[in-house]
Computed example of a mutant assay.
Amino acid sequence: MPSAGMAEVRIVAASPEAARRVAEVLRRCFPAAEQRSYPAGHDGGTRLHITVDTSHTSEPNAAAAPWLVTSESAARDRSHADEV
Rank of each mutant, 00 (worst) to 15 (best):
P66L: 02
E8M: 11
A4I: 10
D77W: 00
H56I: 09
F30G: 05
G45I: 12
T46P: 00
R47H: 06
T51P: 01
H49P: 02
P66I: 14
R36G: 03
R27I: 09
V9Q: 07
R28V: 07
H80I: 09
V25W: 08
G5K: 07
S37W: 07
S55Q: 07
L48V: 04
S3P: 09
H56D: 01
A14S: 10
V25A: 11
D53V: 10
L48C: 08
G45W: 03
A32S: 14
A19S: 02
S79L: 10
S37L: 08
A74H: 01
V22M: 08
A62I: 14
A81E: 15
S58L: 10
A4M: 09
R20G: 07
S71Q: 12
S79N: 05
G5R: 03
T51C: 09
A4Y: 02
V22H: 06
A7L: 15
G44H: 00
S37F: 01
A63I: 13
E59S: 15
V52C: 02
F30L: 04
A81T: 13
G44Q: 03
R20Q: 12
V84N: 12
L48K: 08
M6E: 15
P2F: 09
T51L: 15
P39A: 08
T57F: 02
E59P: 05
V12I: 12
G45C: 00
V12Y: 09
R47I: 12
S73D: 06
S55W: 05
G41A: 04
V84E: 13
M6Q: 15
A7E: 14
V52Q: 03
L68V: 06
A4N: 09
R78Q: 07
L26K: 10
T46D: 03
E72W: 04
P66T: 12
E59Q: 13
A14M: 11
N61H: 13
E17T: 11
E24K: 13
M6C: 05
S15Q: 14
E8I: 07
R28S: 11
A74F: 01
Q35M: 12
D53F: 07
L68Y: 00
V52P: 06
W67C: 06
S15P: 00
V25D: 12
P2Q: 15
H56K: 12
C29P: 04
S15H: 09
A64T: 05
I50S: 01
T70N: 05
P39S: 02
Q35T: 11
V9M: 01
T51F: 09
W67L: 14
H56W: 00
